[in-house]
Nucleic acid binder design. Structure first.
Lengths: 182, 182
DNA sequence: AGATTATATATCATAGTGATATATTTGTCA
DNA sequence: TGACAAATATATCACTATGATATATAATCT
């Protein structure tokens, strides 16, 4: 029933912490947020214009090293809008795992193909886990600096927990598939 | 780089097991597949027409209890198309968890609000876990009947593993947030 | 000097959602 | 047995978001 577009809320959320350019927002999406949310340029730039026209953000031109950029800040109205959205219960948590999909139809391709999908998945998750453990370390060291770090840490730890569970499952799944191969 | 639309592949995957109507496909999506993939009527019906026009599926009218329905079957070309897609490595596994998003920006709303988001998440996951454990039980009993059940079981066990990890995280996250509240 | 990578903004065709409309049949329960 | 709700079944549409691409400048590497 909520009328808030997610992309509006994510961008306002990021702007509630610091002023950012569209490019910087995309970088946050691809690093910090990518474990549970994504966004593309095709939604970021139009949304920024839209937020400005609705008075939820303001833009001002900046120059850094001769390069010009457009820096966006959240307004008081934007902060109110964000808080309203944060109050409302989460509407949807969903996974979209192509690996699982290929595994579900795995009988069509056979066990060895399924195992190679699991191995590729495992490699990817191991890499992500290494990154997240590094992030956790840094966040723990900065916990008392700023209250926001506590919440960042929480989401990083969610990723660590689930990725470890994934890795356990990978081993069990491979064992089960190998048993069938004999 | 792969040109296959996911929705084409999911539907062909389902049709590779049994003939289905659009309505039945939607039901599979909302029950068996919902833990790792979703699809709406708005993509299912147009895709079915499209698959027929490309020769990857055929439709035939059926009647059951006086009610008419359109039943779709996969063709040999459709099966080939599916197998090609299954061979290719998975391109994207992504989570889109609004709960995590609200938690990431949690400082704006405060600890008690964050805790109620976690509690709602926990309740939802507990319900899903109960369902998945029931499904696992049934699948285990039918393991020797049909090879496809092995792959279904694998994906159910993925869900069980991860949901248990989520529940562990919920407790730890709440503990951490309560500590800050004192 | 030349090439590559990073910064920065923007647009567009296409994919997919969520809501809604429509109609029939089955089940419930008073 | 009549009324009403729920399930079955198909379809469409406005809107949201992606992924690819285009363009241009600054920094870095060799």
């Amino acid at each position: 029933m909520a009328l808030e577009k997610k992309i509006d809320c994510v961008i306002l959320g990021l702007l509630s912490h610091e002023d950012l350019t569209g490019y910087e927002i995309k970088k946050r999406m691809d690093t910090t947020l990518r474990y549970f949310w994504g966004a593309s340029y095709g939604s970021i730039y139009p949304t920024l214009s839209d937020l400005v026209s609705r008075g939820l953000a303001v833009k001002h031109d900046g120059t850094e090293n001769g390069r010009t950029k457009i820096i966006y800040s959240i307004t008081e109205d934007g902060r109110l809008y964000l808080k309203e959205w944060l109050k409302a219960p989460a509407e949807k948590d969903e996974m979209r795992y192509e690996t699982l999909l290929k595994l579900f139809f795995g009988n069509e391709g056979g066990a060895s193909q399924a195992i190679s999908h699991i191995n590729a998945f495992k490699d990817k998750i191991e890499r992500e886990l290494t990154y997240l453990l590094g992030a956790e370390d840094i966040l723990k060291k900065n916990l008392d600096r700023d209250d926001t770090h506590k919440y960042y840490l929480l989401t990083a730890q969610f990723g660590i927990k689930t990725y470890r569970a994934y890795l356990e499952w990978c081993e069990e799944a491979k064992t089960m598939l190998c048993k069938g191969e004999e």
